[in-house]
């Protein structure tokens, strides 16, 4: 039987954590940017196996949250867009990882 009238004392949950990063595609984008630093649209698309539209939508959400910054420039006379995680994005990603770690630790203690 569960302890404490049907509730356990397992603290953190996935509900507590940042929904902006928690979404799988956005989590993938943030992981790629944190690992590699500044990356262009084509790289992210290939690394994550996404369509242009899908990637654009999620990059826009991350930009809106202030986690990613975009830079547009011309490279060999062609437009070239790169993305980079912001300081705020790095902090949010670290916080998300800590939350996952706490959930895993709680799960191990519970077994």
């Amino acid at each position: 039987m569960p302890a404490t009238d049907g509730k356990s004392l397992i603290g953190p949950s996935l509900d507590d954590i940042d929904e902006t990063i928690h979404q799988k595609v956005r989590l993938g984008i943030m992981s790629a940017l944190v690992a590699r630093g500044e990356s262009d649209f084509r790289f992210l698309k290939e690394a994550l196996g996404l369509t242009d539209g899908n990637l654009s939508i999620h990059l826009a959400k991350l930009e809106e949250a202030g986690y990613v910054s975009m830079k547009k420039e011309f490279l060999h006379k062609k437009p070239h867009t790169t993305y980079q995680e912001t300081e705020e994005g790095k902090i949010a990603f670290d916080r998300y990882l800590n939350a996952l770690e706490r959930i895993v630790q709680s799960g191990r203690r519970g077994k």
Partner: peptide, 12 residues
Amino acid sequence: MLHTLEEEEPRL
């Protein structure tokens, strides 16, 4: 936040 044990497995 508190969770039931039934909810823990999927979260983990």
